[in-house]
């Protein structure tokens, strides 16, 4: 049985994994196709999907792992805004960027936190 919120988290993580994979292609093109540039993003995408699958069943370790990973995403967003304050650089906010690097991690963190703090009997509910 999977939790409804776990299902939403799972799908959001699929979307996030796809955007990471796409960005990895962009970096590979820029960095002469050196494969080691793909290792960390690939590992992250696999981790997201694995944790997302485990989160469907309310696995606490996976939920905590997702909170950590999404917190890192938010940290990257905040750092980008901060670096953009330098005179030689700028930060360009976009609608899609706000969704994928701001809204999406926040929703995943909130849902994971709610699933972590609820009694297990309620976390594992009716299939969506």
């Amino acid at each position: 049985m999977s939790s409804p919120k776990g299902n939403v988290v799972f799908v959001l993580l699929l979307v996030q994994a796809a955007t990471i994979l796409l960005a990895t292609v962009g970096e590979l093109l820029f960095m002469s196709g050196l494969f080691f540039y793909a290792l960390v993003p690939l590992a992250r995408a696999v981790l997201l999907i694995t944790f997302g699958s485990l989160a469907l069943r309310g696995h606490r370790g996976a939920l905590i792992g997702l909170v950590v990973l999404e917190a890192l995403s938010l940290l990257g967003f905040v750092l980008s805004v901060g670096v953009g304050l330098l005179p030689t650089l700028d930060f360009t906010p976009t609608l899609t960027g706000l969704f994928t690097t701001g809204f999406l991690p926040i929703v995943v963190i909130v849902y994971c936190a709610q699933m972590l703090t609820r009694p297990k009997s309620k976390t594992v509910g009716v299939a969506a």
Binding site: E27, V40, G97, T101
Partner: peptide, 16 residues
């Protein structure tokens, strides 16, 4: 790398 149409970057990156 280059920012994607989805506004994203690979892991552990900042956007400039």
């Amino acid at each position: 790398g280059i920012v994607t149409p989805y506004g994203g970057c690979p892991s552990f990156s900042v956007t400039i």
